[in-house]
Amino acid sequence: MIGSRRQILIRKILVWIALILGACFAGLPVLWMVSSSFKSNLEIFAYPPALIDESFSFQAYEAVLSDPGQLRFFFNSYLVAILVTICTVITSILAGYSLSRYDFRFKKVLSLIIIGVQSVPPITLMIPYFGLIVWLGIYNSYAALVLTYMVFTLSYAIIMMTGYFNTLPRDLDEAVMIDGGGSFVTLWRILVPISLPGIVAVGVYTFMLAWNEFLFALTLTRTNDMRTVPIGIHLLMGQHSFEWNQMLALSVLGSLPVLILFLLFQRYFIAGMSAGSVKG
């Protein structure tokens, strides 16, 4: 008995050691980013480097937060990411329902296309895509960004939603169908409420992607009032100089919403991811 208690203790210590080593791997670079955002631009490149030095100040954060232009980037990022999340969630629920509950002629082909869309390297599509957006008349608008990010996120969102619906027994919806409810009623009243984890997983995934995307956000907008945080970060990289500390401060601030989102929804998120990846 004592031996086993000791064994548990040893195992516990080992687990903690591994846990902390892992946390160092994941967290130390981020810690360095945070500490650098409090340094002066001179000290960021000092050697030997120090985690905190005498140049410590909130100057970079003040500069970022007191700039209405930067705040506008945050507003845009929120607006775009939230809109994309809502649209992707709804669209993927509809598509997932179709792929999970129906058998139809072109199902195989269509699901291959939906997944295959992800295989196109985004950079090469840029010029024709840009032309298309201009042609559609939505250049430099929120609509352009929202639609683009929907395209980016839909594939995986549909995979996840289909997988989640697949884990739910069919008897559920068949019972409602027999009671005279239409398929849409079944989906809306029965499947959606119990699929909350799957929906949250899709939502968080979509939000993160939309929040962080850079290339298209830049190409499809031309004025700062439509631009998002990642572009704000790039605007601090000048032709001749980098505002390192402001760039890092902006990244730290920009990551907070995503972290908070994860913090709040992690349980749901993880539960939802499970179904998504077990069966697509």
């Binding site: 840009f130 032309g131 201009v134 830049l218 790039h234 605007l235 032709q239």
Partner: peptide, 21 residues
Amino acid sequence: TISGPYLTTKDQIIASAATGT
């Protein structure tokens, strides 16, 4: 004014020239 970061202005101008914008 339409202003952007130096590093990407070139790509943007070329893309916009290709699409007549």
